Structures are given as C-alpha cells and as structure tokens.
Computed example of a mutant assay.
Amino acid sequence: METYNDPSGGLAALIFGALMIPLLITYVIYVIGLWKVFEKAGKPGWAAIVPIYNAIVLLEIVGKPIWWLILLLVPCVNIVIAVWVINLLSKSFGQSEGFTIGILLLGFIFIPILGFGNYQYIGPAGAGFAKPFNGFNPNDPFNTPPPSQV
C-alpha cells in the first residue's frame, strides 16, 4: 500500500493560519473598541457583537432612522451610506472629517481610540456641534465672558 504525502496541504494551512490569526486579532480589537463606543453613547456594549443589531444601534447613536438599515443592504448605495454614518459617528463624538477618514482607513485603530480616549458623546451627529463651556478664553473671539467677569 502506497502512502501519499501532499506537502501543498500543509503549506495551505500554514498560509491560511498566518493570514487568519492577525485578521482575528484585528477584528477583536475593533469589536472591543466598538463596545466602548456604544457604552459611551449610553447603549449596551454587547450590541457590538450582534451582527445586524450593531448596525441598528449605530444608527440610533448617530440619530438616523432604523429604515436606513435597508439602504445599507443596497449595493453601491451601501458604500455611500456607510461613509455617511461613519462621518456622523465622528460628529457625534465632536470629531472632524479627518477622524472620519481615520476610521475609514484604519478603523481597527481609530474606533478603539474613540472608545478608550477622552472623547465624549455629545449627541446624535454632534447635537449641533455644541462644545462644552470650559471657562472664558480671552483669545477666542467667539467666547464671551460670563456676566460676573464683565
């Protein structure tokens, strides 16, 4: 009886493992960051691991109706809507379009930064981009002193 040894099977498993382990680690980092983002927004963190529900929670965080989930299922339209939702997520935490680009290109880095950083959830899509008052700054032309300092 002949034995048949095919070395390509072992090589394929090695390549598959070498690719899958870093991808799995990256995904876990992303989900942990998204968990923290959801908690900062007052939503359940466990929603980050439930496939369709996490999109619904994300739409709630950015202040868009749940029917937008249907738009995320339409080919080509879903790309535009996904970028829009990610931009609204950045705005909801008081960040600019630069942070949106960071999430789009390196989401596994920027989502944990958003979740674990000092960023505060200020409301759906930034709630009018209002920034909290941190005291009078005489160098800021748009910042007026409180009445007690006039």
Rank of each mutant, 00 (worst) to 15 (best):
E2C: 14
T3D: 13
T3M: 15
Y4W: 12
Y4A: 10
D6H: 08
D6R: 10
P7F: 08
S8D: 01
G9K: 12
G9H: 10
G10H: 05
G10L: 15
G10N: 11
A12T: 12
A13W: 12
A13H: 03
L14Q: 02
L14I: 06
I15Y: 04
F16H: 09
F16M: 10
G17I: 02
A18K: 01
A18I: 04
L19M: 11
M20D: 03
L23E: 03
L24Y: 05
I25T: 09
I25Q: 07
T26Q: 11
V28E: 06
Y30V: 02
V31H: 02
I32E: 05
I32N: 02
G33E: 05
W35H: 00
K36P: 08
K36D: 11
F38C: 01
F38M: 01
E39P: 00
A41N: 04
A41C: 09
G42C: 08
K43Y: 05
A48H: 01
A48T: 03
P51N: 05
I56T: 02
L59Q: 01
I61H: 00
I61P: 00
I61W: 00
G63F: 02
P65C: 09
P65E: 07
P65Y: 04
I66C: 04
I66Y: 10
I66T: 14
W67C: 12
W67K: 08
W68C: 09
W68I: 09
L69R: 08
L69G: 09
L69P: 02
I70A: 08
L71Y: 02
L72H: 07
P75E: 06
C76W: 12
V77S: 00
V77Q: 03
N78G: 00
N78Q: 13
I79N: 01
V80G: 10
V80D: 02
I81T: 11
A82H: 01
W84Y: 15
V85Y: 03
V85H: 00
L88M: 11
L89C: 03
L89I: 05
S90M: 10
K91H: 12
K91T: 14
F93G: 03
Q95G: 06
S96P: 06
E97I: 15
E97G: 13
E97F: 15
G98Y: 08
G98C: 08
F99V: 15
T100M: 14
T100E: 11
I101W: 13
G102V: 06
L104E: 00
L105R: 01
L106R: 06
G107W: 01
F108H: 03
F108K: 02
F108E: 08
I109F: 06
I109P: 00
F110S: 05
I111Q: 00
I113T: 09
L114Q: 06
L114W: 04
L114K: 05
N118L: 14
N118C: 10
N118E: 15
Y121I: 08
Y121E: 07
I122Y: 07
I122C: 06
G123T: 07
P124D: 13
P124E: 13
A125D: 13
G126E: 12
G126C: 12
G126A: 13
G128Q: 12
G128D: 13
F129I: 14
A130Y: 13
K131T: 14
K131M: 15
P132N: 14
F133K: 04
F133L: 10
F136A: 01
N137H: 06
P138M: 06
P138C: 01
N139G: 10
F142V: 11
P145W: 00
P146G: 08
P146I: 07
P146A: 08
S148L: 02
Q149K: 13
V150M: 14
V150K: 13
